[in-house]
Amino acid sequence: MDPLSTLWETFFDWASMREALPEMVTVGLPNTLLLAVSAALLGSVLGMLLAVAGISRTRWLRWPARVYTDVFRGLPAAATILLIGVGLAPLGMQVWGPNPYPLGVLALSLIAAAYLGEIFRSGIQSVEAAQLEGARALGFSWGEAMRLVIIPQGVRRVLPAWVNQLIALIKDSSLVYFLGLVASQRELFRIGQDYAATTGNESALLLAGLFYLALTVPLTHAVNAIDRRLRQGRPVAAPDVDLEPTGLATPSGKDPR
């Protein structure tokens, strides 16, 4: 048999794919999404706290945020998931029972938070100081100005980086298989791997890969669209020329809306 057709049969065996497909859709996909979305939410909240701590004027907030970020960005994701998932397993057993998902989500969130904290911090710090001054001049406190004016702008600026992190989470969610999953807890990768192991054919794994791409590729394109829209406010109106000295009452026909 020539190597090319071997390759073809190893990866593109339609029968194997068809066999794995139902479980991928009904079990793997929902589980992967559950892990990734939960970790994205928790990771974003933690990341925002880290970002605000990181720009705080208080050393006792700045310094722990720094150490946290260095540690969790510096460890391999697999190591963190094992450390948290296995290390805290006795505790997790008491709180959540034998389900490895809570600790898996926690570990994924802790990793994502380290990256997201840096992303949010850079976004917040990129907002001009004049914006803070403008908000303070209206009577907003520092906290209100940050919450209502600075952070919303900063987050918008780093939305593409935020989605990149979401993509990383979707992929890293496969690592929870280290923690031992029962059949109904398996996510995309694990299901693909199980089929590959039992049939000796990699096609199911390739199918899992296609599922990941189907999740991640649209996300990158969606974020570009969102990014454009946020930058411009809305689909661009006609260039607005309004000669002020005479133009206090602009003809209503010029109104773009």
Binding site: A130, A137, G139, V149, Q153
Partner: peptide
């Protein structure tokens, strides 16, 4: 100072409008 600034309006050279809001 926050209460004071509600009584004292200020307008800046660079406007300082919030670009993310209408």
């Amino acid at each position: 100072p926050d209460a004071l600034r509600q009584r004292v309006g200020m307008v800046f050279q660079q406007f300082n409008l919030f670009p993310h809001l209408s």
